Amino acid sequence: MPAVIEVRHLHKGYGSTVAVDDVSFTVQQGEIFGILGPNGAGKTTTVECVEGLRTADRGEISVLGLDPRRDRAELTQRLGVQLQDGRLPERLTAGEALRLYASFYRRPADPGDLMDALGLAGKRRTPYAKLSGGQQQRLSIALALIGNPEVAVLDELTTGLDPQARRDTWSLIQDVRSRGVTIMLVTHFMEEAERLCDRVAVIDRGRVVAVDSPAGLTERLRDGRRIRFRPSVPFEDALLTGLPDVIGLARSGDHVVVTGTADALTAVTSVLARNGIVAQHLRVEQPSLEDAFVALTGSHSGAGPGGAPGAGAT
């Protein structure tokens, strides 16, 4: 498929601080492409250069064949943007906001149809301040789509949402992609990237350290499998740590956690069986995207399995 976004050797600094340092990637037509990285990694600065909101110091950017700065007026008609912090006036109703934004575009979507599609049909006359967090996020997505864009950029899409609202929003994004919209998604949240993205670019300290599918990134961790079990009788760590496929062993209460290669499970269970030890409650944990992220950046995502990601990245 053709690339709709091309970023080559992007560089952006603020005084002596380098925010983006030689970033390059492409986004293919019809995919959901994630930008993933710790706070301060340069994610939002990169995306704002793509949107034409910031001017890069060096490098080339093409979006739908357009230069974001030189062709900004035309690109605005074809690119939808949901900003990291895009609050509206408290008394502005959802319907008023959509009609206002629709007036900015040559060929806008029908505000009523869009509200119906995004689950806001009953909120046309509701002031922005009276909408729930999930409804405000739906409205921000609607505002990004009101111009019938070919590409949508969504920055920290689910920050501050409860788990159910987050999952509802993920479903909405998948529906948006099914309409043929290419999506660039900036996120801290590992599960969000795993659930939605076809590919992700991991940015750390202003540089792209990897571009791959979420599954492709986790497959790089060949030594990241964890075997968790409760032994039927005590044993010395050396029984397993001496195996070539075992990288490490830790104990958590009465459970043992062995880290090793893809062949570690066979090696560990064989040794235990030969020594008359039963591995009770045996569980094998495959590497996750968060494991790959930590290996690539040395940082955690800033979000637990059920928590909201951190905000304020640049």
Rank of each mutant, 00 (worst) to 15 (best):
A3W: 07
A3P: 01
V4I: 00
F25K: 06
T26Q: 04
Q29G: 04
Q29F: 00
E31T: 13
F33W: 06
G34E: 10
T45H: 02
T45M: 05
T55R: 14
T55H: 10
A56R: 08
R69V: 14
E74Y: 08
R87M: 10
E90L: 00
G95D: 02
L98A: 04
S103F: 08
D113G: 12
D116R: 15
A121N: 12
A121G: 15
K123H: 13
R125E: 12
Q136G: 09
I141R: 14
I146T: 00
P149N: 04
V151Q: 04
A152V: 15
L154K: 08
T159W: 01
Q174D: 13
H188N: 10
R199D: 05
V202R: 05
D204A: 10
D223V: 12
R226P: 08
I227S: 10
R228M: 11
R230H: 11
P231Y: 04
P234N: 04
D237G: 14
D237M: 13
P244M: 09
A250I: 10
A250Y: 01
G253H: 01
D263A: 15
A264S: 14
A264K: 10
V268N: 09
G276I: 01
I277L: 05
H281K: 15
V284G: 01
E285R: 14
D291N: 14
A295V: 01
G298W: 03
S299Q: 14
S299P: 00
S299D: 09
G306F: 09
G307M: 00
